[in-house]
Design a binder for these strands. Structure first.
Lengths: 345, 345
DNA sequence: GACTCACCCCAAAGCGCTTTGGATGCGGTT
DNA sequence: AACCGCATCCAAAGCGCTTTGGGGTGAGTC
């Protein structure tokens, strides 16, 4: 069933039918109703391709997921982020176009998507400290929103980010308040912007008390469970092991907890963990007393925010860039406790 | 830069340029080269919408992710599945269209995607035991591949699945061989097809030895860490607690392990776990001795398979339905050991 | 009754591409 | 020299929609 068929069926011109369905005022309410009903009963759906060819709008948002050839790792956070974004897209009539692309092909992909005409806007994931993509996208000239920020980039861009520095500042303060001094930071990859901000918050808290962080207690890698396990094992094997861990992902924190368990220490008594918690649907850190003390910030919410901002920019190009800084809440769970005095002290 | 511009630039007709770029034989090799080079240097990319309007092919595959309103849970397995599928799509020039849709809107979504013209084929996720979607899609008439199967469906359809029954049969046999008799099954949602097959394999192994499973030791829910924790806690609190757990997801298994740890039991000695392992990139169960004994089957591989099959069906409609049954491998890890004799025996 | 003015509606062009059905020119045959 | 066949190329139609620029009709006005 296409527009023409429907119009013939109704003894109307395609013009009128199109206008009726798209809510233009040049058509009487009676006709509009008649058209709407006919469209409904005959299951007419406008061909998206034809429409977007005619309007110049793709009604689609692209998500480009870079897949580093080294790690081949899909960020688990991604699932919930697109769930949030997808919700908004669906509500606004947009499609989501997902492209998973090796790091080295990214530039071409962005350019193609643009000239292709297959999307109206882009969502950029996993920004690094110095993010060339922003420059590229500004040059290409397509609306986009970055999930996260790029500290070393001084060009303007729209973003949605969590207040990483502040969250980790608070988390560190908590551990320091509990008496911990040997605190290990188990972070994400060192060139990721969020990881750098988190480390900054960590160091800020130490500095504010005139204390120093120990570089030997800082590690950064892809945030897998295995990495958390390995890093924690290594830290705990040091002569002067940490009494607390600050971890960047709840998945990594599970690995840290495993290592702690293997060492025979008790979590929340002998050793503390504070982790960031993206509030993933399959890994919820909830309950009367959540298993982890955590800085929580829903990544699904971030997805919703980003999608809304992006659509707004697409539909309203004059409005300018928009940003949103989401705050994390500090959740007290079972994984923290005051530092135990060692026998020597 | 559009086709017409390029053709004027080259003093050729749009026809010839189109043919040259698309590899039609009606154009001389010299011209083809000239056109290709010009296209390259001027960064010409055909407009996907216009092309697909003309050809009738969308060059896009749709993935529809049902989001149950009850659970609002994104399956973490999904991340790696689409990573695999996306790889294949990219290589074959297809786009991936992702739609996240509440359960109740699914039917309309499928119909729309079809009549919309925005996709050439569909990937169906998370089939349940009795899957109405298959009937619907057969009726709609669009190529699709199901990730998983629907046991209660006797219509023909293409699928890619893991051999769930066999995997869990083997896993159960292993535990039985180790002397375990009280084995708990911590499964996925009871109406999911894979969960039913896994339970079947579980029961099959018992039956083959003339043993009975205990319904009080079977639980099924969304496979979150929390569920694993709660289910295991409840089982361990029973008067005659299980000495082994068979778990459907490594994430759930982490919860089970947590519960075991809390009870003061030692994993691999006092209690055993065998889990299914989808080989998620961020939760790898590897190393000299992996942390979990597991039935491993890469869901990313499954994604690749499914994508290949689907594209094949799209480009080659006459070829008929295709299926692929992937076998899991049994990995021995640290989480299993022989059943300890209790003092009473 | 002629005129204006809304109000509804339509024909046709156009979005950027593919594809059908020729047209053209050239070397080779007879 | 006329003819044929082949290799190259092109004009124009068409994919399904939106949108521009009218055109007809009836009520209201003088």
């Amino acid at each position: 069933m296409k527009l023409k068929d429907l119009s013939e069926l109704l003894n109307l011109s395609p013009t009128t039918v199109s206008r009726a369905l798209n809510g233009y005022p040049e058509v009487s309410e009676a006709t509009r109703r008649r058209v709407r009903e006919a469209a409904e009963t005959h299951g007419y759906r406008p061909n998206v391709r034809a429409r977007s060819l005619a309007t110049g709008r793709a009604m689609a948002i692209g998500h480009v997921i870079p897949l580093s050839s080294k790690h081949e790792m899909m960020n688990p956070v991604f699932t919930d982020f697109i769930a949030g974004a997808g919700e908004v897209y669906a509500a606004q009539g947009y499609d989501m176009l997902l492209t998973i692309v090796p790091d080295e092909l990214q530039e071409q992909t962005y350019r193609d998507l643009r000239t292709n005409g297959s999307i109206d806007g882009l969502l950029v994931h996993s920004p690094k400290l110095a993010e060339q993509r922003i420059h590229l996208l500004n040059e290409i000239g397509i609306p986009y929103v970055v999930h996260g920020r790029a500290s070393d980039c001084n060009e303007p861009y729209a973003w949605v980010d969590m207040n990483n520095t502040h969250a980790f500042r608070r988390a560190t303060d908590l551990l320091l308040d509990l008496g911990h001094r040997r605190i290990a930071l188990v972070n994400g990859l060192a060139d990721m912007d969020f990881a750098i901000r988190r480390q900054a918050g960590f160091e800020e808290a130490f500095a504010a008390r005139g204390l120093d962080t120990d570089p030997a207690l800082i590690a950064g890698e892809e945030m897998t469970e295995m990495f958390g396990h390995e890093a924690a094992r290594a830290f705990l094997a040091q002569p002067d092991p940490p009494t607390a861990f600050l971890v960047s992902s709840i998945i990594t924190a599970l690995g840290v907890r495993r290592a702690i368990g293997e060492t025979g220490l008790r979590l929340g008594r002998d050793v503390s963990i504070v982790t960031h918690d993206d509030d993933l649907s399959y890994l919820q850190n909830r309950g009367d007393v959540p298993m982890f003390t955590a800085t929580r910030s829903s990544v699904r919410d971030a997805g919703r925010h980003a999608a809304r901002i992006l659509i707004d920019m697409v539909e309203n190009p004059a409005a300018g860039l928009r940003q949103a800084l989401l705050e994390a809440e500090l959740i007290l769970g079972q994984s923290t406790g005051p530092r135990l005095q060692s026998a020597a002290e």
